[in-house]
Write a protein that binds this DNA or RNA. Structure first.
Lengths: 238, 238
DNA sequence: ACCTCCTTGTGTACATCGTACAGTGCGTGT
DNA sequence: ACACGCACTGTACGATGTACACAAGGAGGT
């Protein structure tokens, strides 16, 4: 309905783009996530990042969002250093893989947020899992038990990563620029008068955290502490 | 524009509802989440659950969705048994709180999914945290170190809970009714021929899991294992 | 060289989500 | 009896994932 307007008024058909491919899409999605967290990885954002005018272009290559996420996760897992064979010291092997994983999640804060939404069945995920199983098996642990141990280590890495990701997300959401901004907001949330009597220890930690010369708690230290405790416990069971 | 139609054709104004309150809303939201997971807790669903025709009714009471989530989380945390004072045995105290928390997350599968989206600043969350700090302090640990230990325990509970929540979500999403349904789908995903050479140990675990008389791996056992390992490691550092 | 087809990118459209804004009916205080 | 204001309602908007039909342009056959 309606008369077709003269052609000069109609915008020219936009130049077509060629040469999209799965790898470029995944790379763009990862870059987006590295910078803005998991929330920044929307199909539309990825599409414009690869120069496409519509999110639908991506669907030919990654099937759907879950597929894209799976590819992102596996690409990130590929960055984890996994030896071909277990070495002489099981503890050193586990430590190395755990630390390499932790370093990866530090580089890709979206990883922890997204891994919980998909089953970890990518090849690189399996490779890491297989290695941990081999390490524990070589240390004399039966396979089912080894699975339990490996899952423990994995769980610790992912849990720590998730906590770190939350923290970063909060910094982004509130546009925090330095630790001082955090302190300013924290002070508002925490009504010291009320809390001091009910939660004296938390209050004490809080005030010492608010002091000018406070050493910022390091996620790395907490990660290492948990890992060490876990491995000690495992060692007692081998 | 347009003539007003005769009144009999217009639907009568729906009866107004009175007596919404925050408690009822939170309770309804929790019931929804218990049954359908975090995804089922939409403002619209909660609104219809409390008999309101529009989600906007809720906003007077819970401010926004984040507020509702905060209230849900704190209500769930209230179910965790936290003694008033530490007992004689620090390990028993920590075990009891951890297990009570784990039981709670089992009852409320949405908890683990949602807790990661909000800072844990509710009063019941603080109460539990304060207790754990007191327990470790009584055991002779300096407060900053105690915080590290408490966070470790907390992290393990939440990590285990999250894993369990994912699994339940997958059951819901694929409408699994029994373990056999899981096996049927797993068989498709896992191309045994390819994996057998690359991941022999995973394959072995997989086939033993697929066998008819396989004992299903229990999340509780895994939780207890991790907790025990963690506490062993902590014990060595006290 | 031309016609045809298949691959691949595009545009439009819809359901669902959270929630802003402007009413509107009822209980209540005067 | 009257008006005020609280508590609820309806409509609407922007964001998200994605289904569907279409169009451009290279590839292959003649």
């Amino acid at each position: 309905m309606g008369v077709t307007p003269p052609i000069w008024l109609l915008p020219e058909a936009p130049r077509r783009q060629r040469g999209l491919d799965r790898d470029g899409i995944v790379r763009a999605a990862i870059a987006l996530g590295d910078e803005g967290g998991a929330d920044a990885v929307t199909m539309r954002a990825v599409a414009t990042a690869v120069g496409s005018s519509t999110p639908m272009s991506l669907y030919r290559y990654v099937h759907n969002r879950d597929g894209l996420v799976d590819l992102m996760l596996d690409a990130a897992m590929a960055e984890v250093d996994v030896p071909a064979e277990p070495g002489a010291d099981w503890r050193a092997d586990v430590l190395a893989v755990a630390r390499s994983s932790w370093a990866m999640t530090g580089r890709h804060p979206w990883f922890a947020e997204l891994v919980h939404s998909r089953p970890p069945a990518g090849p690189n995920s399996l490779r890491k899992q297989e290695f941990l199983l081999a390490v524990f098996e070589k240390a004399g642990v039966a396979l089912p038990t080894a699975r339990g141990f490996a899952q423990l280590v994995d769980g610790h890495v992912l849990g720590s990563a998730l906590q770190q990701a939350e923290e970063r997300k909060m910094w982004r959401a509130n546009d925090f620029r330095s630790i001082d901004d955090v302190k300013a907001v924290a002070e508002q949330w925490f009504d010291a008068g009320h809390a001091a009597t009910l939660y004296p220890r938390i209050t004490q930690l809080f005030t010492s955290m608010m002091s000018a010369d406070a050493v910022p708690e390091s996620p790395d230290e907490q990660f290492e502490l948990g890992l060490a405790c876990l491995l000690d416990g495992i060692a007692q069971r081998i």
